[in-house]
Amino acid sequence: MNWKERLARWGIKRSPWVYHVNTGACNNCDIEILDVLCPRFDAERFGIKLVGTPRHADVLLVSGPVTRHTEQPLRDAYEATPKPCAVVAFGACGCSSGIFKDGLNVNGTVDRVIREEDPEAIITYVPGCPPRPEAIISAAVKTLEAL
């Protein structure tokens, strides 16, 4: 790890910019993610910010079982994210494809897809259906510690 990457990791812990990738989730995780930014939980206290393009992102928040149609976009999104970056497999579906794991159209979990793309990727897991906002914040802290 060169000094530049160390700098980036130092920075990411203090200002993680999050890009949200929905790979077939049911919306609930997405809503709870937004909820965390809202007045009651206010994730901006930790510098967390949602951004509109993966080019600006440090953390890819992936919710949902990876469906057949979102697998390639997920790979593209990971490629489009400047490194170093972290991937958070969000919710029961993100962690394990959840209740949909037997679905004909579901291709597999987030970590499988990301690992195929980059074996070194940093992946953390936030289980729950959906994870409660408190759980999300605690997971955020753990994710950043993993960097």
Binding site: K4, V21, T53, P54, R55, P73, L74, D76, A77, E79, A80, P82
Partner: peptide
């Protein structure tokens, strides 16, 4: 910060498509 030659080339991002 970046050797200008080795910039990683990526496809244009238009939202995943």
């Amino acid at each position: 910060f970046d050797s200008l030659k080795d910039l990683r080339r990526v496809p244009t991002w238009v939202g995943g498509s």
